[in-house]
């Protein structure tokens, strides 16, 4: 067996290089942090770091669900609309039934819509792009049907104080994001469902042959994605004290950008929450840093576009060296 060479037992340096190759977003994140801290003295202050984390957390929570769905080789374009519906229900219903039941129903609406998305994908065999593109349009319609064209305002302002808990500079929202991300990283790495996600995303037929219930599996992941979108919406409604019918518009695009920036692949079978956290933070740092430097907001949009294409090209390049 001597000639069975095991590439795993390379030098520690080699291992580190491999890790960085898989998580190149963290290198990029470190670079952006260095650049912005050199460019602006305010960037690396405790306050600003807290801001970045809170700002990033909203897209971050959406990105967690999106990562699950994307490792499955699917996509969910409806998260922005689900977020708006949950946010509207949480505020609109609390006058009738109290805060927590309303929040619960908001969450349930996200879970239910995620379930609908997943069921449609699994039963019809349509691509999730089409199913959730329909959802993106239709669920936004639901929001308007429920709330009309006006923003719903919270009556009891103690509602907006719920997320005002800080751990040092870190807000509850940010903590929630990290806790959820770590939890789902654990799900991905240590549970049957998580391991199934990679198997299904990489080779759906092999997964099916191995006895994995692919349909149920996908429904679960879409439900997770919808639920997380609802959590994001509820946190947003708490932060703003209002629920706008247009809340979260094109957030699904930002979310996809964050996830892809992290390195998770649209084709499925590859990705992790570590990568997504990196992508989310990079996006937040870029947006925050550019604003600190007083660049006009068009620069932000153009940089985002450029970075995304760059990330994709980089991934293509590294992708060819790594693995197969």
């Amino acid at each position: 067996m001597s000639s069975v060479t095991d590439r795993r037992t390379g030098s520690p340096l080699h291992n580190l290089l491999n890790l960085l190759l898989r998580n190149h977003i963290w290198v990029f994140l470190a670079l952006t942090v260095v650049v912005f801290s050199l460019a602006s003295p305010y960037f690396l202050t405790i306050n600003n770091v807290g801001n970045i984390l809170t700002q990033g957390a909203f897209i971050g929570i959406l990105a967690i669900g999106m990562t699950m769905v994307m490792i499955d080789g699917e996509i969910d374009l409806s998260v922005g609309a689900i977020l708006a519906l949950a946010s509207a229900l949480a505020i609109g219903l609390q006058d009738h039934m109290g805060v927590w039941p309303a929040v619960f129903l908001g969450l349930m609406s996200g879970a239910a819509l995620g379930f609908v998305n997943g069921t449609l994908v699994a039963l019809s065999g349509m691509h999730s792009f089409i199913v959730t593109l329909g959802g993106l349009i239709g669920i936004r319609g639901l929001v308007f049907v429920y709330s009309g064209e006006n923003a719903l305002m919270v009556q009891d302002f103690s509602y907006t104080e719920i997320p005002e808990i800080y751990l040092g500079p870190i807000s509850l929202t940010a903590i929630l994001f990290f806790v959820l991300a770590l939890f789902f990283q654990w799900v991905l790495s240590s549970t049957r469902h998580g391991r199934e996600t990679y198997a299904v995303g990489d080779n759906i037929e092999a997964a099916h042959d191995a006895g994995i219930n692919v349909k149920r599996h996908k429904i679960i992941n879409f439900t997770i994605c919808g639920t997380l979108a609802a959590i994001c919406g509820i946190l947003l409604s708490m932060r703003l004290g209002t629920a706008e019918p247009n809340a979260g518009k094109i957030w699904e695009l930002w979310t996809i950008i964050a996830v892809v920036l992290g390195g998770t692949r649209l084709q499925g079978g590859f990705g992790s929450m570590w990568m997504t956290i990196g992508g989310v933070l990079t996006l937040a740092v870029l947006r925050n840093g550019l604003r600190l430097l007083n660049t006009p907001n068009y620069v932000e949009l153009m940089v985002m576009g450029g970075v995304l294409v760059l990330a994709l090209a980089l991934d293509k390049l590294l992708n060819h060296k790594e693995d197969r």
């Binding site: 549970t191 049957r192 391991r195 990679y198 198997a199 092999a206 079978g269």
Partner: peptide, 26 residues
């Protein structure tokens, strides 16, 4: 081969038949 490249050797050997507790934790 019907393997998932992102999973470990052990996980691939037992693909879909992983030992878990009743909460689905490996």
């Amino acid at each position: 081969l019907s393997l998932s490249p992102e999973l470990s050797v052990a996980e691939n050997i037992y693909l879909g038949a992983w030992p878990t507790n009743r909460f689905g934790v490996l």
